[in-house]
């Protein structure tokens, strides 16, 4: 009896492993196929090689740029700006949310302004930022912060606001004041929401920083894109795109790991 279950279980595990292997293999195959077809189409002139470049040209450029050290400078600049705007936006947004929660009057007064700010395409403020803060990395970071902090404030405030009243009542029956309610209930109860806004903010910070670099920068991956576009070097544009995709994925995965670690507690 038991051995029959064991056998069935072994089969099940075996099947699961096989499915997993097949998925990985297909994913890999697709990637190879994509790169291969692209390369072929480019060398055979089925697509315009000036516009779509080719994997070999992109990797050649990659090796060159790594070699002369310029690529790392660009990557460092953009990553630094993105991380800075991501961290600042999250902390600043959560702090604003805390103020709104703390002072209902402030929250009522600021409500329509927040709605307008949230609806507004923040990118449109770019030129004003540059004039106000100068054409440097401060403007770029400000752009990244601006784009994600309003939504962080709104979402985290909503989480603070929706804290189960009964948990608050528990603290109040012990004589807890508002500060203790915030420390012991409101903030910890909102941690899952804050972590999920981190995920959104990763993406938004990248948008803000790249747009910022389009507008002002002399370095960074956004600058590489604009420069490549201006001198009609699409190999450079595509290289930047790939690097951005990889870096953004790393950051997103990092936040995902943070989330898992918190869940396990």
């Amino acid at each position: 009896m038991k051995s029959k279950i064991d056998i069935a279980y072994e089969q099940y595990i075996h099947q699961e492993r096989r499915t997993k292997r097949n998925v990985l293999f297909t994913q890999f195959l697709l990637f190879v196929l994509f790169v291969g077809v692209w390369e072929l189409a480019s060398t055979q002139n089925w697509i315009n090689p000036l516009l779509f470049s080719s994997p070999s040209r992109i990797s050649e450029l990659f090796i060159n740029k790594i070699g002369d050290g310029t690529l790392l400078v660009h990557i460092a600049a953009t990553t630094g700006e993105t991380l800075a705007s991501f961290v600042i936006a999250t902390i600043f947004g959560t702090a604003c949310a805390a103020i709104l929660w703390w002072a209902p009057f402030v929250s009522k007064v600021s409500d329509p302004y927040l709605v307008v700010l949230n609806a507004m395409p923040k990118v449109a403020l770019g030129p004003i930022l540059i004039v106000a803060l100068g054409p440097g990395y401060i403007s770029i970071i400000a752009m990244g912060v601006l784009i994600s902090f309003v939504i962080t404030t709104l979402v985290v405030y909503a989480a603070f606001h929706e804290t189960d009243q009964n948990y608050i009542k528990v603290i109040e029956t012990f004589g807890g004041d508002k500060k203790q309610v915030f420390q012991e209930v409101t903030l910890p109860a909102a941690i899952p929401t804050i972590i999920s806004t981190l995920k959104v903010n990763v993406g938004l910070s990248w948008v803000g920083v790249i747009v910022g670099e389009f507008l002002v920068s002399k370095k960074g991956l956004g600058y590489m894109i604009i420069y490549g576009f201006q001198v009609f070097n699409f190999t450079l544009v595509l290289l930047s795109l790939f690097i951005i995709a990889i870096l953004a994925t790393f950051m997103y995965t990092g936040v995902g790991m943070l989330e898992n670690r918190w869940r396990k507690r």
Partner: peptide, 11 residues
């Protein structure tokens, strides 16, 4: 004070 539910903090 004791409530209808325990309201123990899950975290």
């Amino acid at each position: 004070y004791m409530f209808q539910q325990d309201y123990l903090f899950p975290w």
